[in-house]
Write a protein that binds this DNA or RNA. Structure first.
Lengths: 200, 200
DNA sequence: TATTATCGTATAACAGTGTTATATTCCACT
DNA sequence: AGTGGAATATAACACTGTTATACGATAATA
């Protein structure tokens, strides 16, 4: 512990610039989406030189990776709910509702993790792992429901249906032609429940 | 007719450069998606100067607009099917199947029209109209089915469910983490049929 | 303690992007 | 033939991501 503390402190000193950069990136990202994320803008707001983004991260790829992971972790956390009730449909629906909240409240993150970004960006292994973790969580939740309800539909298939509906609604609501005054969350949740009850 | 022919010919002469640009843009777009679409690359392939893209189109925005409209027109055409059979579910399913084919065969167009592109692009009024036309077609088809089946679900709601499922599957299949060897079309069609039959 | 090495940082540059101001060519019409 | 106007080319501007070089401070070593 104490042996490591020195090197930890050294890491923390470096972290200072690291977190400064990451915070600046997050702010710009939330303000103006991925198009507002330029290396110079990030470094300017962080009060550092552009080179810091290449020493602390792997350039812009590293910044996008960090935000990508953050986004998928939010999706994971949204679905990582425990319900005392034994009826697992509630678990699934609550997970979807929280998923939808994340997508609405963090539109920039959501757009980033679902490919609506700079075409040059390719998620790293760590980022892909975060994505897989989130999907595995959804499959797990769905599997619980199917088992409790005594349904024989494959849980991967059911989970894909679920994700397609929820993500489909989110993606359409993000589209330029989407009516802004619709209650997309309610629409999506109704569709999910209808679909879940139709499984056999 | 003949009166217009002269101006038409003049238009055609202009069209030469216009179509040359558009063809070059389409080629590059199909080859490498939106990231391969640079003003200089387009003009180079067209054998013209960059300025032509600003005189014939409104810069890159105009190029993207043309491809956006092309994309939504393909979606519209996909759903614009006539079925002799009175059972309109076939109409809906066939429309979805053709929609899915368009999305699979023209991934670049599909990504463009659904926001997975350069964040700077904002579709023009003409482009937005093309999008609205496609959605209206889907609502129309869905409405036919609901009427024939004697269902009282709102046709906008049903159409949104339909679109969310189909687009959701397409979007997920385009995602970096999507398994490449899955039959996404079959998955989506099964989900659509299941969902349609669950409506009341 | 003095020196060396290393790491983080800044400056400046390179190659690319969309866009546009200026200049030039070319063609149609009077 | 000459003039007007449209299409084009050249070059530049402001921006992007990235990197080579140089500088400085801090840590480890002789």
């Amino acid at each position: 512990m104490l042996y490591l503390s020195t090197s930890c402190f050294k890491s923390d000193e470096n972290m200072d610039s690291r977190t400064k950069i990451l915070n600046s990136a997050s702010e710009l990202f939330l303000e103006g989406g991925v198009s507002a994320l330029s290396v110079r803008a990030i470094s300017k707001r962080a009060g550092l030189s552009t080179i810091g983004i290449y020493s602390h991260f792997q350039g812009k790829q590293g910044i996008l990776d960090a935000l990508y992971i953050e986004g998928f972790n939010m999706v994971y956390d949204a679905m990582n709910v425990e319900v005392s009730d034994k009826a697992s449909l509630k678990l699934v629906l609550l997970g979807c509702e929280r998923y939808l909240s994340v997508a609405v409240d963090n539109e920039a993150h959501y757009r980033l993790i679902f490919g609506e970004n700079d075409a040059a960006y390719e998620p790293s292994k760590e980022a892909r792992d975060a994505a897989d973790r989130a999907f595995a969580k959804l499959v797990h939740n769905t599997g619980d429901y199917l088992r409790d309800a005594g349904l024989k539909t494959d849980r991967f298939v059911a989970a894909m249906d679920l994700w397609a509906i929820v993500h489909g609604y989110v993606s359409i609501s993000h589209h330029a032609r989407a009516k802004q005054d619709w209650d997309w969350k309610a629409m999506a949740l109704r569709a999910v429940e209808l679909h879940m009850r139709a499984l056999d």
